[in-house]
Write a protein that binds this DNA or RNA. Structure first.
Lengths: 241, 241
DNA sequence: CGAGAAATTGAGTCTCTTCAAACCCCGTGG
DNA sequence: CCACGGGGTTTGAAGAGACTCAATTTCTCG
């Protein structure tokens, strides 16, 4: 099953015909190497990008030159579906590891939306789930730093799980530096590091090579006060079709 | 011109037929008084709400009991269009002043979307602009408090202007306590107050009664480093029709 | 094995918070 | 018409959390 379909079906019910049409719209894969932009801020792409493998992020550069990460992107994510609706991208998408991606021209997205309102609804849902994730990140205020970091790790784990990319007992295919995490949390590198160290010393997580491993999911969830509801997997609203 | 149409046409080109259909879907207005919930967190409304007058906010209650405001809502805004796509609302919508609202049943929204893909696109755009606003709020990190407060005031002004509700030289029809602003900024009441005082002493803003007035728009914009692009008024992407 | 990137650690500083009290505006009732 | 009361605003001071700076260690990969 194509990774895009795993994503789409995790969002909503999608018929076989619609699934086939979606995959059919994909262009051949492209490789992007770590540190490169997949789409850059201010550009007006004429296609939307589907992540096939690797980790990327949406980010903005702050007035003082530092980077703020708005959300992480995993395989299956349509990183710039946003641009289909907004014309001009108000943030960049950068590769945090080597990535493989595939494009769908906006014209094809438009055609899909017109022919299959249910697919349009699924795409819409995808962008709104992003909003929901942002809502949750905004809740950083009101949590301790330990809780925030734990919460972010929980989210990372669950989102990988949703597309079948987490193997129990094995590290996640998630490679990001502590600087990346700090940029996403809006914390300094030093403080992030010390907080992660606290989680390690509690034996909740570990690092195997450059990869993150969760040692005690129950405890981590408890520390983070994590409730995955905001990721909205499969809680469908009124079906359109 | 109906306030909803001012909003829709500020988002995208909408034909006369589509405009008529949208307004036709509205139910008779309802009054909500200050402090009441328009929609409560965790509910699964079967309609979406259009603000006709007043100020409201989307909010979440944090673990420690304090409120975090995710975004303000002004006349014309479809406060819980979100719920059409998400089924379960992950945040509440509360009235910050007495409000007048009108509903559109989800079933009618679905019918509109099916019959007019261009309207569906406009609705989609609306939810994505919300995301864009959140992106900008997230940028609080990386700005000084003075800049953040000034930026929020700029946004409030411009959004009122977009629906024709700001009269030059007159105070904005925006009534929110400093506690409301603090909850939106993620700052303490005390600090918010002191920052607002700083803006007042620079003669950039003033308060007339309980209303906000902007005295020096150019300077305020400069202090905030404000660029309204992220509100995406009228920068249309590919039209669908 | 060596070089550069990433992670770790310590120390000093500053912003923002919390606590607490006073003040002011405005509607209500005597 | 004025006293009263309550919500909202303003102010001061002390404390905690997070940041920056800077040095050191560890990891990763050619």
């Amino acid at each position: 099953m194509h990774i895009l379909l795993r994503k789409l079906t995790s969002l909503h019910d999608v018929s076989d015909e619609e699934q086939a049409a979606a995959v059919d719209a994909l262009e051949p894969p492209t490789q992007i190497s770590r540190g490169q932009d997949i789409v850059s801020e201010g550009s007006t792409p004429s296609y939307t990008t589907v992540m096939l493998s690797g980790t990327a992020c949406r980010y903005k550069i702050l007035p003082r030159g530092n980077r703020h990460i708005l959300t992480f992107q995993y395989p299956g994510d349509m990183t710039d579906l946003y641009s289909y609706v907004m014309k001009k991208l108000d943030h960049g998408v950068g590769a945090l590891s080597n990535c493989s991606v595939s494009h769908i021209p906006h014209a094809k997205v438009a055609a899909l939306c017109k022919k299959y309102p249910n697919l349009a609804y699924t795409f819409w849902r995808d962008t709104v789930v992003d909003t929901s994730i942002l809502h949750n990140w905004a809740l950083g205020e009101g949590r301790t730093t330990l809780e925030r970091v734990a919460h972010m790790l929980c989210e990372i784990f669950v989102r990988f799980e949703a597309v079948g990319l987490s193997e129990p007992g094995l590290p996640l295919p998630f490679t990001a530096t502590q600087q990346d995490l700090a940029d996403a949390l809006g914390l300094s590198l030093v403080h992030t590091n010390k907080t992660i160290a606290a989680l390690k010393s509690r034996k909740l997580i570990s690092r195997t090579g450059s990869r993150l491993q969760i040692l005690d999911w129950q405890q981590l969830k408890a520390v983070a006060n994590f409730d995955p509801a905001y990721l909205h997997f499969k809680d469908r609203a009124i079906p359109i079709r």
